[in-house]
Simulated assay, not measured.
Amino acid sequence: MKIKRIFVDCHVFDGNFQGTTTYLKGLYIELIKDKNYRIFFGASNIDIVKNIFGTHENVTFIKYKAKNKFYRLLFDIPAIIKANKIDYAHFQYVVPPIKNCKHIVTIHDVLFLDFPQYFPLLYRIKNKFLFKRSAKCSDIVLSVSEYSKMQIQKHFEIKTVTVTPNAIDPVYFETYDKENCKEQVAKKFKATNYFLYVSRWEPRKNHHRLLKVFVEKEYYKNHTLVFIGDKAIENKEYNDYYDSLSPSIKVTIFSFHKLNFRDLLLLVRGADLSIYPSIAEGFGIPPLESLAANVPTICSNTTAMADFQFFDDCLFDPLDLEDLKDKIEIGLKDTKIVQKKEAMSVKFSWKQAAEQFKKAIS
């Protein structure tokens, strides 16, 4: 087999960790093991990328000349592709206008077309044009779930989309001392006996309904509520409801932004219950990560998350407050975490994702 030279645009590692960074990390750590692939990683902060992927004979790291995205797409990447005789260049969502090798694009979701009410008009117009053009111009189109695959085919009239599903970072499966983690969290973050929601802030993420259930069910008397995630799109409904609360309730609600990975992992491990009430997702990694860490987890049953059937009695309708209340009670008493975790591990792995990637290239 001829060695295939693949360039990977890793500019997403220059910012905060999110779904795309988890995806690229998991997929390429697995692909690097196959010496039939020579991988070239491009980023502005090469040190971060080197730290993630490590040193290998078949890996080269290339530093971008500029951080400006337009310069990167118009000049930097085409020059890198030409200089290194790249066979395939892999991008997330948007490919460059200049094409001097075969393009691979991963479109993680098109939720802005499925749920336009949750996204600004300009965002929808711009990304519909860019994502559709990228899908049409690429030789291989990938996505991360069957749900996203079907929606991409529907909206962009693309016949072939390969699913390379997300999986979980192995660190979440490592053993740890639960009580020690809870003590560390209490000391560093002041949160005790807490419910956890990990997600960036957007209206579709449904933070406001979780907050309402937390308050109306009076969980604040025995628990605290922890939100982890950066601000993306303002959620006015959450803000208005939060502002109406008394100071005695507000002190039981914590919101953390721009955490490093070590603190994020600590907060996941120390949680009494992980809750993922998002209304719409292209995949939804956080509930799988908390389940992998043996944390009782309840999860929304909509869009791509409808495929998480291993959550069984801990799936709920994110628009139904009563259902959410019921599932919180079930989650707190869950005795089937080990079985659910095993079923999840069978369904999602980076090895499977890498195999699907190789088939798409072949």
Rank of each mutant, 00 (worst) to 15 (best):
V161G: 15
V163K: 07
V163D: 06
P165Q: 15
N166D: 13
A167P: 15
D169Y: 01
V171I: 15
Y172H: 08
F173I: 01
F173T: 07
E174G: 04
E174T: 06
T175E: 06
D177V: 11
D177I: 09
K178W: 11
K178V: 14
N180T: 14
C181S: 13
K182T: 06
E183R: 04
E183A: 15
Q184T: 11
A186Q: 13
K187L: 14
K188C: 08
K188S: 12
K188Y: 11
F189T: 04
F189D: 13
N193W: 00
F195Q: 07
F195L: 14
F195S: 11
L196Y: 07
Y197T: 07
Y197I: 12
V198R: 00
S199W: 03
R200N: 13
W201H: 14
W201A: 13
W201T: 15
E202N: 03
P203V: 03
P203T: 05
N206Y: 14
R209Q: 12
L210N: 08
L210F: 09
L210V: 12
L211I: 08
K212H: 11
K212A: 05
K212R: 14
V213G: 02
V213D: 01
V213T: 05
V215I: 12
E216A: 13
E218D: 13
Y219W: 07
N222S: 07
N222R: 04
H223V: 01
T224E: 03
T224Q: 03
V226F: 03
F227K: 09
G229T: 15
D230R: 07
K231Q: 05
A232Y: 00
I233A: 01
I233V: 09
N235E: 06
N235V: 03
K236G: 04
E237L: 11
E237C: 03
Y238M: 05
N239R: 11
N239K: 12
N239D: 10
D240L: 02
Y242W: 10
Y242P: 00
D243M: 03
S244N: 09
S244E: 05
S244D: 06
L245M: 04
S246V: 06
P247E: 14
S248F: 07
I249S: 02
V251G: 11
I253H: 07
I253M: 05
I253E: 00
F254E: 08
F254R: 03
F254L: 04
S255Y: 06
H257W: 10
K258L: 05
L259F: 10
N260E: 05
L264N: 04
L264R: 06
L265V: 03
L266A: 01
L267V: 09
